[in-house]
Simulated assay, not measured.
Amino acid sequence: MRREARNRAAAVAVAALALGGIGAPTAAAATPEPPPASELTLRLEALSGPGFLNRDLPREVVLECEPAGGSHPAAQDACRSLLRVGGQFERLSGQGACPDVWEPVLATAEGTWQGRAVSYSEIFGNLCDAAVGTDHVFAF
């Protein structure tokens, strides 16, 4: 009888080791893929009727950073621009020439930047001004 009890105890111990310990979660189950550190929905909308520059508005993309991704066509460059200004859209600036055409657009960003909530909106004279004025974050 004593031999059966030892065999049963040994079987339970082997099963517990095979399962990684009774009640202990496995490492794979405890570490799901973390979400991007920064995820923003960027949108461009025309504030006037269809024009030469803004005929295909509204447009919307998702920008993910850390790691760079989403549907933004130049996610790495946009993330790099935002990293330089700590995610503060108001501090973005750029250089470049744009046509002197008044076709106002509204640029908005909603989401999170490094865990902090972001809500940004600004009116630009046209699409080119929006792209250049935000160091190409709104170039999509």
Rank of each mutant, 00 (worst) to 15 (best):
L92K: 01
G49Y: 00
S71K: 11
A46S: 15
E90S: 15
N54Y: 05
L82V: 05
E60H: 06
P58T: 06
L63P: 01
V85C: 12
R55N: 15
N54K: 05
L92A: 01
V61T: 06
S81L: 03
E64D: 14
A46G: 11
G51Y: 00
A46Q: 03
L82S: 03
P67W: 08
S71E: 06
V62S: 14
G94S: 00
S71N: 09
P58E: 08
E60S: 11
P73W: 05
R84Y: 03
L82R: 04
N54R: 05
L53H: 14
R80E: 13
G86P: 08
V61Y: 00
S71D: 11
R84F: 08
G87V: 09
P73N: 12
V62P: 13
C79T: 04
E90V: 14
L57D: 06
G70P: 13
F89D: 03
G49E: 07
L83A: 15
N54H: 04
G51S: 01
L63D: 03
N54E: 02
V61F: 00
G87Y: 07
P50M: 09
L47S: 00
G69N: 12
L63T: 03
P67Y: 04
S71G: 09
A68G: 14
L83S: 11
E60A: 02
E60T: 07
N54C: 00
L83I: 13
R84P: 01
A78H: 04
R80D: 13
P50A: 13
E64N: 12
P50K: 15
S71M: 03
G49P: 09
G86H: 06
C79D: 03
P50G: 09
R55G: 14
G87I: 04
Q76Y: 07
S81E: 04
L47G: 02
G87N: 11
E90F: 13
C79G: 05
A78L: 08
G87L: 02
L57I: 11
G49W: 00
R91D: 14
G94E: 06
L92V: 06
R59M: 13
E60C: 01
E60M: 07
L47E: 02
G70C: 10
P50Y: 09
R91Q: 12
S48F: 03
F89L: 14
E66W: 10
E66M: 05
Q88M: 10
D56L: 15
F52A: 10
G94N: 02
F52P: 11
R55P: 12
Q76L: 06
L53F: 15
A68I: 10
Q88T: 11
G51R: 04
A74F: 06
